[in-house]
Protein backbone atom coordinates (compact mmCIF):
# COMPACT_ATOMS: atom_id res chain seq x y z
CA UNK A 1 0.00 0.00 0.00
CA UNK A 2 1.26 3.45 -0.81
CA UNK A 3 1.17 6.31 1.64
CA UNK A 4 -1.22 9.09 0.76
CA UNK A 5 1.53 11.66 0.24
CA UNK A 6 3.55 9.44 -2.01
CA UNK A 7 0.53 8.78 -4.12
CA UNK A 8 -0.06 12.47 -4.48
CA UNK A 9 3.44 13.23 -5.77
CA UNK A 10 3.89 10.04 -7.68
CA UNK A 11 0.77 9.83 -9.76
CA UNK A 12 -0.26 13.32 -10.71
CA UNK A 13 0.96 14.96 -13.86
CA UNK A 14 0.30 18.43 -12.53
CA UNK A 15 3.19 20.43 -11.16
CA UNK A 16 3.04 19.93 -7.43
CA UNK A 17 4.12 22.81 -5.27
CA UNK A 18 6.05 21.17 -2.50
CA UNK A 19 5.91 22.68 0.97
CA UNK A 20 9.11 24.64 1.70
CA UNK A 21 10.45 22.22 4.30
CA UNK A 22 10.26 19.33 1.96
CA UNK A 23 11.74 21.41 -0.83
CA UNK A 24 14.66 22.30 1.42
CA UNK A 25 15.23 18.72 2.50
CA UNK A 26 15.07 17.50 -1.07
CA UNK A 27 17.56 20.09 -2.15
CA UNK A 28 19.84 19.25 0.75
CA UNK A 29 19.77 15.57 -0.05
CA UNK A 30 20.30 16.28 -3.72
CA UNK A 31 23.21 18.58 -2.98
CA UNK A 32 24.64 15.84 -0.85
CA UNK A 33 24.61 13.41 -3.75
CA UNK A 34 25.86 16.00 -6.18
CA UNK A 35 28.52 17.05 -3.68
CA UNK A 36 28.19 20.63 -4.84
CA UNK A 37 25.70 23.41 -4.21
CA UNK A 38 23.27 24.16 -6.98
CA UNK A 39 23.77 27.05 -9.31
CA UNK A 40 20.83 29.44 -9.51
CA UNK A 41 21.79 32.05 -12.06
CA UNK A 42 19.33 34.64 -13.28
CA UNK A 43 19.54 36.98 -16.25
CA UNK A 44 19.67 40.10 -14.11
CA UNK A 45 22.85 38.92 -12.38
CA UNK A 46 24.61 39.45 -15.69
CA UNK A 47 23.07 42.87 -16.04
CA UNK A 48 24.32 43.81 -12.57
CA UNK A 49 27.85 42.63 -13.27
CA UNK A 50 27.89 44.42 -16.63
CA UNK A 51 26.66 47.56 -14.93
CA UNK A 52 29.41 47.30 -12.32
CA UNK A 53 32.05 46.94 -15.02
CA UNK A 54 30.74 49.87 -17.00
CA UNK A 55 30.08 52.14 -14.05
CA UNK A 56 33.43 51.45 -12.45
CA UNK A 57 35.11 51.96 -15.78
CA UNK A 58 33.22 55.17 -16.44
CA UNK A 59 33.90 56.49 -12.96
CA UNK A 60 37.57 55.67 -13.25
CA UNK A 61 37.57 57.16 -16.71
CA UNK A 62 36.26 60.43 -15.37
CA UNK A 63 38.78 60.31 -12.58
CA UNK A 64 41.67 59.42 -14.84
CA UNK A 65 40.72 61.93 -17.50
CA UNK A 66 42.69 64.58 -15.70
CA UNK A 67 45.85 62.55 -16.03
CA UNK A 68 47.38 61.99 -19.42
CA UNK A 69 46.80 58.26 -19.58
CA UNK A 70 44.53 56.25 -21.87
CA UNK A 71 41.04 55.81 -20.40
CA UNK A 72 39.99 52.76 -18.46
CA UNK A 73 37.64 51.57 -21.18
CA UNK A 74 40.41 51.87 -23.74
CA UNK A 75 42.69 49.87 -21.49
CA UNK A 76 40.02 47.22 -20.98
CA UNK A 77 39.31 47.12 -24.69
CA UNK A 78 43.00 46.66 -25.45
CA UNK A 79 43.21 43.61 -23.24
CA UNK A 80 39.86 42.01 -24.07
CA UNK A 81 41.23 39.72 -26.82
CA UNK A 82 43.90 38.37 -24.50
CA UNK A 83 41.46 37.83 -21.64
CA UNK A 84 38.91 36.13 -23.89
CA UNK A 85 41.68 33.89 -25.19
CA UNK A 86 42.55 33.04 -21.59
CA UNK A 87 38.91 32.32 -20.88
CA UNK A 88 38.72 29.97 -23.85
CA UNK A 89 41.59 28.11 -22.24
CA UNK A 90 39.45 27.78 -19.09
CA UNK A 91 36.67 26.32 -21.22
CA UNK A 92 39.07 23.88 -22.81
CA UNK A 93 40.26 22.77 -19.38
CA UNK A 94 36.67 22.38 -18.22
CA UNK A 95 35.75 20.24 -21.25
CA UNK A 96 38.72 18.00 -20.80
CA UNK A 97 38.31 17.77 -17.04
CA UNK A 98 34.63 16.98 -17.36
CA UNK A 99 35.32 14.31 -19.98
CA UNK A 100 37.96 12.57 -17.91
CA UNK A 101 35.99 12.97 -14.69
CA UNK A 102 32.80 11.62 -16.21
CA UNK A 103 34.46 8.60 -17.76
CA UNK A 104 36.27 7.66 -14.56
CA UNK A 105 33.32 8.61 -12.36
CA UNK A 106 30.83 6.48 -14.26
CA UNK A 107 33.04 3.44 -13.87
CA UNK A 108 33.54 4.23 -10.19
CA UNK A 109 29.82 4.78 -9.68
CA UNK A 110 28.90 1.47 -11.26
CA UNK A 111 31.55 -0.20 -9.11
CA UNK A 112 29.81 1.29 -6.08
CA UNK A 113 26.76 -0.86 -6.79
CA UNK A 114 28.75 -3.98 -7.54
CA UNK A 115 27.71 -7.23 -5.88
CA UNK A 116 31.29 -7.89 -4.79
CA UNK A 117 31.84 -6.35 -1.34
CA UNK A 118 35.55 -5.52 -1.88
CA UNK A 119 34.83 -3.70 -5.15
CA UNK A 120 31.97 -1.85 -3.52
CA UNK A 121 33.98 -0.88 -0.46
CA UNK A 122 37.04 0.11 -2.51
CA UNK A 123 35.12 2.34 -4.87
CA UNK A 124 33.23 3.85 -1.95
CA UNK A 125 36.46 4.78 -0.22
CA UNK A 126 37.92 6.29 -3.39
CA UNK A 127 34.73 8.27 -3.97
CA UNK A 128 34.54 9.60 -0.42
CA UNK A 129 38.25 10.40 -0.42
CA UNK A 130 38.10 12.63 -3.46
CA UNK A 131 34.76 14.10 -2.47
CA UNK A 132 36.01 15.20 0.93
CA UNK A 133 39.31 16.61 -0.25
CA UNK A 134 39.17 20.32 -1.11
CA UNK A 135 39.50 21.01 -4.85
CA UNK A 136 42.44 23.31 -4.34
CA UNK A 137 44.38 20.70 -2.37
CA UNK A 138 43.78 18.09 -5.07
CA UNK A 139 44.96 20.60 -7.62
CA UNK A 140 48.17 21.17 -5.67
CA UNK A 141 48.60 17.46 -5.27
CA UNK A 142 48.53 16.81 -9.01
CA UNK A 143 50.56 19.90 -9.73
CA UNK A 144 53.48 18.91 -7.56
CA UNK A 145 53.46 15.15 -7.62
CA UNK A 146 52.96 14.40 -11.29
CA UNK A 147 56.15 14.49 -13.33
CA UNK A 148 56.52 17.25 -15.92
CA UNK A 149 57.20 14.63 -18.56
CA UNK A 150 56.80 10.92 -19.11
CA UNK A 151 59.25 8.65 -20.83
CA UNK A 152 57.49 6.01 -22.85
CA UNK A 153 59.79 3.69 -24.78
CA UNK A 154 62.41 6.31 -25.32
CA UNK A 155 59.91 8.98 -26.29
CA UNK A 156 59.55 11.96 -24.01
CA UNK A 157 55.91 12.83 -23.53
CA UNK A 158 55.72 16.31 -22.05
CA UNK A 159 53.25 16.81 -19.27
CA UNK A 160 52.67 20.54 -19.06
CA UNK A 161 51.14 22.35 -16.10
CA UNK A 162 47.72 22.78 -17.63
CA UNK A 163 47.40 19.05 -18.22
CA UNK A 164 48.25 18.39 -14.60
CA UNK A 165 45.77 21.04 -13.50
CA UNK A 166 43.11 19.42 -15.67
CA UNK A 167 43.78 16.06 -14.07
CA UNK A 168 43.67 17.66 -10.64
CA UNK A 169 40.29 19.20 -11.37
CA UNK A 170 38.92 16.00 -12.87
CA UNK A 171 39.52 14.06 -9.64
CA UNK A 172 36.76 15.76 -7.61
CA UNK A 173 34.58 15.68 -10.73
CA UNK A 174 35.14 11.93 -10.87
CA UNK A 175 34.09 11.50 -7.23
CA UNK A 176 30.99 13.65 -7.67
CA UNK A 177 29.98 11.88 -10.88
CA UNK A 178 30.44 8.59 -9.06
CA UNK A 179 27.98 9.71 -6.39
CA UNK A 180 25.56 11.03 -9.00
CA UNK A 181 25.60 7.67 -10.79
CA UNK A 182 25.18 5.72 -7.56
CA UNK A 183 22.39 8.00 -6.37
CA UNK A 184 20.55 7.75 -9.69
CA UNK A 185 20.82 3.96 -9.82
CA UNK A 186 19.58 3.66 -6.26
CA UNK A 187 16.69 6.00 -6.98
CA UNK A 188 15.33 3.52 -9.52
CA UNK A 189 12.67 1.46 -7.71
CA UNK A 190 13.77 -2.07 -6.84
CA UNK A 191 10.74 -3.34 -8.77
CA UNK A 192 12.60 -2.53 -11.98
CA UNK A 193 15.42 -4.88 -11.01
CA UNK A 194 12.95 -7.60 -10.03
CA UNK A 195 10.91 -7.25 -13.19
CA UNK A 196 14.02 -7.44 -15.35
CA UNK A 197 15.32 -10.38 -13.36
CA UNK A 198 12.05 -12.27 -13.71
CA UNK A 199 12.27 -11.72 -17.46
CA UNK A 200 15.62 -13.49 -17.37
CA UNK A 201 17.79 -10.41 -17.96
CA UNK A 202 21.28 -10.89 -16.58
CA UNK A 203 22.57 -8.30 -14.08
CA UNK A 204 24.71 -6.71 -16.72
CA UNK A 205 21.86 -6.58 -19.23
CA UNK A 206 19.55 -5.14 -16.58
CA UNK A 207 22.04 -2.41 -15.79
CA UNK A 208 22.81 -1.50 -19.39
CA UNK A 209 19.38 -1.92 -20.97
CA UNK A 210 17.01 -0.99 -18.18
CA UNK A 211 18.55 0.84 -15.25
CA UNK A 212 21.15 3.16 -16.80
CA UNK A 213 18.89 4.47 -19.58
CA UNK A 214 16.40 5.50 -16.92
CA UNK A 215 19.18 7.11 -14.92
CA UNK A 216 20.40 9.42 -17.67
CA UNK A 217 17.39 11.68 -17.37
CA UNK A 218 17.91 11.93 -13.63
CA UNK A 219 21.64 12.43 -13.88
CA UNK A 220 21.63 15.14 -16.51
CA UNK A 221 20.67 18.12 -14.29
CA UNK A 222 23.21 17.41 -11.51
CA UNK A 223 25.81 16.57 -14.12
CA UNK A 224 25.36 19.87 -15.89
CA UNK A 225 25.35 21.70 -12.58
CA UNK A 226 28.63 19.99 -11.77
CA UNK A 227 29.99 21.12 -15.11
CA UNK A 228 29.14 24.75 -14.34
CA UNK A 229 30.81 24.38 -10.93
CA UNK A 230 33.87 22.89 -12.59
CA UNK A 231 34.01 25.77 -15.05
CA UNK A 232 34.01 28.22 -12.17
CA UNK A 233 36.64 26.12 -10.41
CA UNK A 234 39.03 26.38 -13.35
CA UNK A 235 40.09 29.75 -11.94
CA UNK A 236 41.75 27.77 -9.16
CA UNK A 237 44.37 26.84 -11.72
CA UNK A 238 45.55 30.44 -11.49
CA UNK A 239 46.75 29.73 -7.95
CA UNK A 240 49.17 27.16 -9.31
CA UNK A 241 50.24 29.38 -12.18
CA UNK A 242 48.43 28.06 -15.24
CA UNK A 243 47.96 30.93 -17.70
CA UNK A 244 44.20 30.96 -17.68
CA UNK A 245 42.01 34.02 -17.52
CA UNK A 246 42.59 34.87 -13.85
CA UNK A 247 46.37 34.60 -14.16
CA UNK A 248 46.33 36.75 -17.28
CA UNK A 249 44.11 39.32 -15.58
CA UNK A 250 46.51 39.58 -12.68
CA UNK A 251 49.49 39.88 -15.02
CA UNK A 252 47.76 42.60 -17.01
CA UNK A 253 46.84 44.42 -13.82
CA UNK A 254 50.36 44.34 -12.51
CA UNK A 255 51.74 45.43 -15.90
CA UNK A 256 49.32 48.35 -16.04
CA UNK A 257 49.72 48.96 -12.33
CA UNK A 258 46.71 51.25 -12.10
CA UNK A 259 44.44 50.69 -9.09
CA UNK A 260 41.38 52.10 -10.86
CA UNK A 261 41.54 49.14 -13.27
CA UNK A 262 40.98 46.59 -10.50
CA UNK A 263 37.19 46.72 -10.26
CA UNK A 264 36.46 46.76 -14.01
CA UNK A 265 38.92 43.96 -14.74
CA UNK A 266 37.78 41.63 -11.98
CA UNK A 267 34.21 42.52 -12.92
CA UNK A 268 34.95 41.61 -16.53
CA UNK A 269 36.19 38.19 -15.46
CA UNK A 270 32.99 37.66 -13.49
CA UNK A 271 31.02 38.71 -16.55
CA UNK A 272 32.83 36.21 -18.77
CA UNK A 273 31.99 33.39 -16.39
CA UNK A 274 28.46 34.56 -16.07
CA UNK A 275 27.88 34.67 -19.81
CA UNK A 276 29.05 31.10 -20.08
CA UNK A 277 27.43 29.61 -16.98
CA UNK A 278 24.09 31.37 -17.15
CA UNK A 279 22.69 29.52 -20.19
CA UNK A 280 23.85 26.25 -18.65
CA UNK A 281 22.09 27.02 -15.38
CA UNK A 282 18.92 28.02 -17.27
CA UNK A 283 18.90 24.81 -19.25
CA UNK A 284 19.60 22.72 -16.15
CA UNK A 285 16.71 24.36 -14.37
CA UNK A 286 14.40 23.63 -17.30
CA UNK A 287 15.43 20.00 -17.36
CA UNK A 288 14.92 19.74 -13.64
CA UNK A 289 11.42 21.17 -13.82
CA UNK A 290 10.50 18.72 -16.53
CA UNK A 291 11.78 15.90 -14.41
CA UNK A 292 10.00 17.01 -11.24
CA UNK A 293 6.66 17.32 -12.97
CA UNK A 294 6.84 14.06 -14.88
CA UNK A 295 8.31 11.98 -12.09
Amino acid sequence: MRAAGERLYGTTDLPVLLPPGERLLRRASRERTDGVPRLTLKAWHGAVIAAVVLLAAAAAQAQGAAEARPGVLTALWKWVPLLVEGFLFNIAISFLGMGIGTALGTVLGVMQISLLPPVRAGSWIVTQFFRNAPWLVLLFFCMFLLPFEFRVMGFVVPFPDWVKATLGLSLPVMANVSEIVRGAVQSIPSGQWEAAESLAFSRRQTLVQIILPQCIKRMLPPWMNLYAILTMATVLASVVGVSEVMTLTQRVLSAESRPELLVPFYGFVLLLFFMYCYPIARFTHKLELRYVVKL
Partner: peptide, 15 residues
Protein backbone atom coordinates in the same frame (compact mmCIF):
# COMPACT_ATOMS: atom_id res chain seq x y z
CA UNK B 1 22.28 35.85 -2.19
CA UNK B 2 22.36 35.39 -5.93
CA UNK B 3 25.58 37.32 -6.42
CA UNK B 4 27.48 35.26 -3.88
CA UNK B 5 26.01 31.92 -4.81
CA UNK B 6 26.80 32.22 -8.47
CA UNK B 7 30.31 33.56 -8.74
CA UNK B 8 33.55 31.68 -8.08
CA UNK B 9 34.45 32.20 -4.39
CA UNK B 10 38.09 32.69 -5.36
CA UNK B 11 37.19 35.65 -7.54
CA UNK B 12 35.02 36.97 -4.71
CA UNK B 13 37.99 36.79 -2.39
CA UNK B 14 40.27 38.53 -4.89
CA UNK B 15 37.62 41.14 -5.44
Amino acid sequence: IQLFRNTPPLVQMYF
